[in-house]
């Protein structure tokens, strides 16, 4: 335990003093601030005259403004934080020749990977928390809306999901840093995987859907077919943690969203029946709706870490 603690503290200090962290943090903070400011001002215009706008606070995170919403931004570029924090975690030590020295200290070998992972996760936590606080503060400043306990809960859960999501990418990066002895290789591999999951899975999903449930563009299709098409697309695209994350967070952040599905079949009677009371979901229900997603995110994060852990434990320590 002691070893892990010492390593954790050193790694944390390393992260916070490293240039790449400072650049990344500055970049993300800047983008967040700009996004929030734009969203804030456009919301302010929209909200003029509305007495007590509810749910406005959440819009700070979900409203797309001119470019993209903050949630989308994190979904897309959040993985970079994890990757940057972890892609050279092990192989740099190995190349430096410090790994065998470290392993020869009277600490358990897993203290090294645990400490590194923990430091990364804590860095992610600090980063996200400060961004969210910043945005909330800015929101309070520009809009003057105070979040209720429900909204605070939503933001907290959003924070937790985001931490797991980025931690997953941290795990991936650390795994690559174990497998690839070359730092550049592991960085490239990590970025390739990120691009694959962020861009190609969506593309592959529509390909798969078109192949399995083709839809004739000219004559259109009945609802059932469209639905099946959407389901295939959804199922495939859920292979991407990004999709998993953005679906989960958009449902958590928007209480009016009642499902993570993008297409649903609703009969006319159901429509009428639903529109009768159009209340926002309570937080608990929102959580339950996305719970499988959250669980899945947590699981892949844990499993990714477990794989890194085992790989590291079984690997030869010797340098070179």
């Amino acid at each position: 335990m002691r070893g892990m603690w010492v390593i954790y503290r050193k790694e944390l200090a390393d992260h916070f003093s490293s240039n790449r962290f400072v650049i990344l943090f500055a970049l993300i903070t800047m983008v967040s601030l700009i996004t929030t400011f734009m969203v804030g001002t456009s919301l302010k215009k929209e909200l003029e005259g509305i007495a007590r706008p509810s749910l406005v606070f959440m819009m700070l995170f979900t409203s797309t403004g001119d470019l993209f919403s903050l949630a989308q931004f994190i979904a897309f570029f959040g993985p970079l934080i994890g990757l940057v924090l972890g892609f050279d975690a092990i192989n740099r030590e190995r190349i430096n020749g410090t790994l065998s020295k470290l392993a020869a200290q009277p600490i358990y070998r897993d203290a090294i990977i645990n400490g590194k992972f923990m430091a990364g996760v804590v860095t992610i936590k600090i980063m996200l928390l400060s961004i969210v606080l910043l945005i909330s503060g800015l929101g309070l400043f520009t809009l003057g809306v105070t979040p209720g306990p429900e909204e605070v809960g939503r933001v907290l859960i959003y924070l937790v999901i985001s931490i797991f999501y980025i931690s997953f990418w941290l795990g991936v990066a650390i795994l690559f840093s174990i497998f690839f002895r070359n730092i550049a290789t592991s960085a490239l591999a990590a970025i390739a995987l990120w691009i694959f999951f962020s861009f190609f899975v969506t593309f592959g999903a529509s390909l798969a859907a078109n192949a399995l449930v083709p839809i004739d563009q000219n004559q259109g299709a009945d609802a059932e077919r469209l639905f099946a098409h959407a389901q295939v697309q959804k199922a495939v695209s859920l292979l991407s943690p990004m999709k998993l994350y953005s679906d989960a967070t958009s449902t958590i952040l928007d209480p009016m969203r009642k499902t993570t599905r993008s297409l649903i079949l609703i009969g006319p009677m159901e429509r009428v029946s639903m529109d009768r009371f159009n209340r926002p979901l309570p937080l608990g229900q929102s959580i339950l709706v996305v719970f499988p997603y959250i669980v899945f995110l947590i699981l892949i994060t844990l499993i990714c870490f477990a794989i890194s852990y085992l790989a590291f434990m079984r690997q030869e320590i010797r340098s070179g």
């Binding site: 358990y108 070998r109 897993d110 339950l288 719970f291 499988p292 959250i294 669980v295 947590i298 699981l299 844990l302 499993i303 870490f305 477990a306 852990y309 085992l310 434990m313 079984r314």
Partner: peptide, 26 residues
């Protein structure tokens, strides 16, 4: 599903603990 999910997480965490236990002591 919430419970199933929690159970799953628990199983994985337990598994991780086992991994820690048996692979970690070196």
């Amino acid at each position: 599903w919430g419970w199933v999910g929690l159970l799953l997480i628990l199983v994985v965490v337990l598994g991780l603990a086992l991994v820690f236990r048996y692979a970690g002591r070196r």
